[in-house]
Design a binder for these strands. Sequence first.
DNA 1: ATGATTTGCCTAAACCTTATAGGCAACTTA
DNA 2: TAAGTTGCCTATAAGGTTTAGGCAAATCAT
Lengths: 190, 190
Amino acid sequence: MARAGLTTERVTLAGAELADEVGFEQVTVSALARRFDVKVASLYSHVKGSHDLKTRIALLALAELADRASDSVAGRAGKDALTALANTYRDYAREHPGRYAATRLRLDPETAAASAGGKHSQLTRAILRGYDLPEPDRTHAVRLLGSVFHGFASLDAAGSFDHSAPDAAQSWPRILDALDALLRNWPPAE
Amino acid sequence: MARAGLTTERVTLAGAELADEVGFEQVTVSALARRFDVKVASLYSHVKGSHDLKTRIALLALAELADRASDSVAGRAGKDALTALANTYRDYAREHPGRYAATRLRLDPETAAASAGGKHSQLTRAILRGYDLPEPDRTHAVRLLGSVFHGFASLDAAGSFDHSAPDAAQSWPRILDALDALLRNWPPAE
DNA sequence: ATGATTTGCCTAAACCTTATAGGCAACTTA
DNA sequence: TAAGTTGCCTATAAGGTTTAGGCAAATCAT
């Protein structure tokens, strides 16, 4: 009766890998048990259940993405920083579709508060230092950028851009050009 | 043995209502059977199964949303049209969260082609008539607007804006101001 | 080292959802 | 009102979730 060496971390990581392979919605405690070649009930010592597992994958992905985002904007400013951050999100969504989908899981307030979620808005706020926006427009701009990054990755992943020309990849740099131009010429409140 | 009067349309509509109440992911053939006070197997005469049901709900929502969007931009131009379209998406996402989530279901290519999906990009393209954008920038702008509408609704629904001030409702008009300004001053390709 | 304790994975079982097959009753139509 | 169609049924099987309780392996104390 050899032990498989399960821990909560290892189970969560395997769940994230499974999500990238088969989709976040398809992640199940049973599938994970098969992957470890272990009986289903064994996993219940490490995660509380299906929802707990998915929440842990979401937290893992949020933290991992925040780390990458943080690295990407370090030492950059202005449009350079904007592009780096935006590309980090787009690349992560493409490389890790399951993990990326996990970041959109609705977390209960206290879990969300303890997550890396706040770090993401902090990072977006940081790249706005290179532009000259007074509050509260800075907050509005953070939300606009978040919407674009998330919305584009989401529609791209859903294949929404697949049936029109040109390639989504062609639109991306022009969208970043446009956002940069917008941030440099942000309209004043009337 | 009274008949419940099930039809594919009625089952789909009830599925959409259920989605708005408990969330799109929670829509199940079983739950729907309970709602009709009918045995599960009975529903299988009307929908092929769980995936078919969800697909039908998605198509219903896409069509319904396209109708509303179409109504909202009729007779408007420029920023007025932009605001009307944007608000239609935001309002629909708030009023019908389950249906809105359904619109993000990944459809297989031929189903997607037969859906109202294309109408949405047509409508967005239409409001750009009020601005002066050459191709291919018009397409890039359509994608940007789609990303913002979808991304904002999505983040708003996920509660991502809940833990920072001010209210998301305050950001929305300013984001539309910003998009209008951007479309009027779209940066030229270098 | 060896007994005690903790930890890890197990069997067993109950419940829910999906899905299919086949049957009888209730509507429809002629 | 008989024939045909449709609508909902029972029965059944397979797979996922979750809990309870048990034995063995690893770890710790003496």
